Simulated assay, not measured.
Amino acid sequence: MGPVTEAILALLCAVGAAALLWLLFGWLVRPASVHNLWIVIPGRGNGNLLEAALRQLAWLRRAGLFRGEAVIWDAGLTPEGRELALRLSLRWSWVTCCPSGALEEWLGR
Rank of each mutant, 00 (worst) to 15 (best):
I72T: 05
L84W: 12
R61G: 07
G45Y: 07
L60E: 15
L49V: 13
I72H: 06
Q56W: 08
V29G: 07
I39S: 03
V4D: 11
G68N: 09
P42Q: 04
E83K: 12
C98H: 00
A70L: 05
N36A: 09
E105C: 03
S89R: 06
L28N: 04
G45R: 08
V34M: 10
R109F: 10
W38A: 09
L20Q: 12
E105R: 11
S33C: 05
T96Y: 02
T78V: 06
L24E: 00
R62C: 11
P99Q: 02
G16I: 00
I8V: 15
W94I: 03
V95M: 04
A10G: 11
L24T: 02
C97R: 01
L65T: 02
L86E: 14
W92N: 07
I41E: 03
L60T: 13
V29I: 15
L84H: 14
E51H: 06
L57M: 03
A52Y: 02
E69R: 14
L88V: 06
L49M: 15
N48Y: 03
V15Q: 00
L90S: 14
G26Y: 01
C98R: 00
A53W: 04
E51C: 05
L20M: 11
W27E: 07
S93D: 12
G45P: 08
W73C: 05
A7E: 14
V15T: 00
A102R: 15
W27Y: 09
F66M: 02
L90F: 10
G2S: 10
R87P: 06
R55E: 15
L9M: 08
W106K: 13
V34W: 06
L84G: 15
I8M: 13
P31Q: 14
G45Q: 09
A32S: 05
P99D: 04
D74K: 03
A17W: 00
L57P: 02
